[in-house]
Simulated scan of single mutants.
Amino acid sequence: MNAEILTTERLVLTPVAATDFNDLSALWLNEDFTRHIMGRALSTEEVWFRLLRDLGHWAALGHGNWTIRLRDGGTYLGSVGVFDYRRDLTPPFDAPELGWGVAPAFQGKGYAAEALSAALAWVDGSLAAARSVCMIAPENLASLKLAARVGFRPYATATYKDHPVQLFERPRPGAAPGADET
């Protein structure tokens, strides 16, 4: 596994680890956080399975979710990642998927944008993909705004697990259209 640690002006992003479980559990039990992602809080069992999935993602593919912590003090903020979850979507994702989430107490401070920008820079420099993708619930206005801010543009609508989602794409800077090398 080629575990990448990313640092920004205010943040440290480390590959998710088993030691993140308590922080992840607190985050995924927060209904203000899960409202637009799962529509409900998750049990600790569900969080454990998500953590195992994410650990396996790093082991199998060399990338996945990063834990976001403040550089000063190490406070847990959330996660950002690049992954291939093989989602049951039409149209299917055919490029690296980005996802992010910051605890409600830290939203509106630019942390999600800072973490997402670092992850996108890693994708652009490390993966041979002409574009990256993400999906966002139409009512998740903060994520829609952030996606647009970092260069994602809508390209399709879909239904995922019985809920409408908007699919977005972001071309890698300098990539020729249709030049996906993955």
Results as ranks from 00 to 15, higher is better:
35 R>Y: 12
22 N>M: 11
33 F>D: 02
82 V>P: 00
102 V>F: 00
97 E>G: 01
37 I>Q: 07
77 L>N: 10
94 D>F: 05
34 T>A: 09
107 Q>T: 07
24 L>F: 06
140 N>D: 11
136 I>V: 09
151 G>A: 07
59 A>R: 15
25 S>G: 02
78 G>A: 10
147 A>E: 02
78 G>L: 06
68 I>K: 01
23 D>K: 06
117 S>Q: 13
112 A>D: 03
46 E>N: 08
100 W>S: 03
32 D>I: 04
112 A>C: 10
134 C>M: 08
80 V>S: 09
108 G>A: 01
101 G>D: 05
121 A>W: 12
97 E>K: 03
22 N>C: 11
131 R>Q: 10
79 S>I: 08
110 G>V: 14
82 V>I: 15
104 P>L: 04
33 F>T: 01
79 S>L: 15
137 A>D: 15
92 P>N: 09
60 A>L: 15
112 A>M: 05
19 T>A: 14
108 G>I: 02
19 T>E: 12
93 F>G: 06
74 G>F: 00
145 K>Q: 11
54 D>W: 04
52 L>M: 13
20 D>R: 10
122 W>F: 13
120 L>W: 05
86 R>Y: 12
109 K>G: 01
66 W>L: 07
43 S>M: 08
75 T>P: 03
45 E>A: 14
129 A>K: 00
39 G>Q: 13
127 L>H: 07
36 H>I: 04
88 D>E: 12
40 R>L: 05
55 L>I: 08
106 F>T: 05
114 E>Q: 12
125 G>T: 05
129 A>V: 01
120 L>H: 03
27 L>Q: 06
125 G>M: 09
47 V>H: 04
43 S>E: 06
103 A>L: 01
33 F>K: 01
109 K>V: 00
20 D>K: 10
20 D>I: 14
141 L>V: 14
105 A>G: 02
141 L>C: 13
18 A>K: 10
53 R>D: 11
139 E>P: 07
21 F>E: 06
93 F>P: 02
79 S>V: 14
72 D>K: 10
125 G>R: 08
109 K>R: 15
61 L>G: 08
43 S>F: 11
119 A>W: 00
138 P>L: 11
50 R>G: 05
140 N>S: 12
51 L>V: 06
110 G>S: 11
103 A>W: 04
18 A>M: 14
44 T>D: 12
65 N>C: 09
59 A>H: 13
51 L>Y: 08
140 N>T: 09
85 Y>P: 07
67 T>D: 02
137 A>T: 14
46 E>K: 11
85 Y>L: 15
118 A>Y: 01
91 P>Q: 13
133 V>W: 00
40 R>Y: 04
143 S>E: 03
39 G>R: 09
24 L>G: 07
61 L>V: 12
117 S>Y: 03
117 S>N: 14
105 A>W: 02
144 L>S: 10
30 N>I: 12
29 L>S: 14
28 W>E: 13
22 N>A: 15
136 I>H: 03
